[in-house]
């Protein structure tokens, strides 16, 4: 049974030490931290972390977040940001994900969020290939939700990376309706809309989150959850969406953290 689900983006810059001296996106990190903390509040037996990846497979629960692949200087151990003055989403190198084989970045980032939120329980880590169909993604989601009596799900997924002339993938106007559709589906807890997302269009838009969103839909098992969107923006031309979803059999904390939560004012 799914107790709660959280949705976070997984850009490398979510790792505080990768942006250098400037925290750059502290509000995004804070939203992600709070979403991870929401999962803990749902008192799960297991937290499953799911993200798109090259392969569809499970990962060992003692994997390692490998930031040196993005910033080799970090391996020297000298260039790190002064954590005494950095914002509080700093590294906990002793966390559950500090050893073992390197994890795909989104899983590593997800584990770090849960570590920072104080999670000390069981993990299930899974990547899903972009080649997997909506139905198979949904089946995986249902399977993950059934691995324990109480399962929480952390979905690491990004929207279009083509939301502007300076976006990583340059501008593709189709990004705006696509991301709006995803955001609306998350807001409404509309699993059918998530399962109906066009995989080919998502690929065109560099929206890597498509399989992970569909795993989420499967884990929700057709229920209409209540949801709170706490971050919805594209500061670098990539759509970042942070949300928490509660299946209606569980109580919603009255956090009142909703802000904005749509793409209004955008083309």
């Amino acid at each position: 049974m799914l107790t709660a689900a959280a949705l976070c983006p997984a850009p490398p810059l979510l790792a505080r030490e990768l942006t250098g001296a400037d925290p750059v996106v502290p509000e995004l990190r804070e939203a992600c931290f709070n979403a991870a903390a929401d999962l803990l509040q749902s008192d799960p037996d297991v937290i499953a972390v799911v993200a798109a990846g090259e392969q569809t497979r499970a990962f060992g629960t003692r994997g390692r977040l490998d930031l040196a692949a993005y910033a080799p200087a970090l391996a020297l151990g000298r260039a790190s940001v002064d954590h005494a003055s950095a914002d509080e989403a700093s590294v906990d190198s002793d966390g559950a994900c500090s050893e073992g084989e390197p994890l795909p970045l989104p899983l590593g980032l997800g584990c770090r969020l849960l570590d920072e939120a104080g999670y000390a329980g069981q993990f299930a880590l899974h990547t899903v290939s972009d080649a997997v169909t909506a139905a198979d993604c949904a089946a995986l989601g249902a399977r993950l939700a059934a691995t324990a009596p109480r399962v929480a799900l952390l979905v690491m997924a990004d929207g279009s990376a083509r939301r502007g002339l300076k976006a990583p993938g340059y501008l593709d106007e189709r990004s705006f309706p696509f991301d709006a559709q995803v955001t609306e589906a998350i807001r409404a807890g509309d699993t059918a809309a998530l399962l109906a997302l066009d995989a080919s269009l998502a690929r065109d838009l560099m929206a890597t989150g498509r399989p992970a969103w569909q795993v989420l839909a499967g884990a929700l098992d057709g229920q209409r959850p209540d949801s709170v969107i706490s971050y919805c923006d594209d500061p670098f031309g990539v759509a970042y969406l942070v949300a928490t979803l509660w299946p209606q059999h569980d109580v919603i904390p009255t956090s009142g953290r909703e802000r904005g939560g749509d793409w209004s004012g955008r083309p």
Binding site: L13, G20, A21, V24, Y70, R78, A79, A161, P168
Partner: peptide, 17 residues
């Protein structure tokens, strides 16, 4: 200092978003 790895960049975002 940044090339040596003694100092982080002031602000790194390119390729990391």
């Amino acid at each position: 200092a940044a090339i040596r790895g003694d100092r982080p960049p002031a602000r790194a975002v390119r390729g990391l978003a």
